[in-house]
């Protein structure tokens, strides 16, 4: 019986990476809340997680040095989209709705901690198995 540690962790690791990516996106929106002409961006977490977990098994071979690397979970591809603003025009072309971005950021931070809790549980489970206590 072999347990692949990679397989045990991978799902939550990908989720954690995507959560941290999303928090960066939201932080960027919040930072640009007063920038004229800035358009708020976001991505669908569920779709991104599905995409990332389905692509993990197919590791594309690099045949040229300039090719983008498919390994390394820090550059998970996400489908970035502009947010449709609640309010049509604010006068300066900015489409950031600060309260919704703040709440989304807070929720995303909670979900990051949730993913971390799951990961911690996996690690604890493995440790118990290793120690056999």
């Amino acid at each position: 019986m072999a347990i692949s540690i990679d397989k045990v962790m991978q799902y939550h690791e990908t989720a954690l990476m995507l959560r941290s990516k999303r928090s960066e996106v939201l932080a960027s929106n919040i930072a640009n809340a007063n920038t004229p002409g800035y358009k708020a961006k976001d991505f669908d977490f569920n779709k991104a997680l599905k995409l990332a977990t389905s692509q993990q098994s197919s590791n594309i071979q690099k045949t040229h040095a300039d090719h983008y690397s498919s390994s390394g979970s820090s550059d998970i591809p996400v489908d970035m989209q502009f947010i449709t603003p609640f309010q049509a025009g604010t006068g300066d072309g900015n489409s950031v709705d600060l309260p919704s971005q703040q709440t989304a950021f807070a929720q995303n931070a909670m979900e990051y901690q949730m993913s971390m809790r799951f990961l911690n549980g996996k690690i604890k489970g493995l440790m118990t198995a290793i120690k056999g206590e």
Binding site: L16, I30, A31, A33, A106, Y112, L119, N120, I123
Partner: peptide, 21 residues
């Protein structure tokens, strides 16, 4: 204030990540 809060939250998340496992 909002951006300071964002940076603070990121700091807390990173600190918790460091103690993973």
């Amino acid at each position: 204030q909002t951006n300071l809060q964002v940076a603070n939250t990121a700091k807390q998340l990173l600190q918790k990540t460091l103690t993973l496992g």
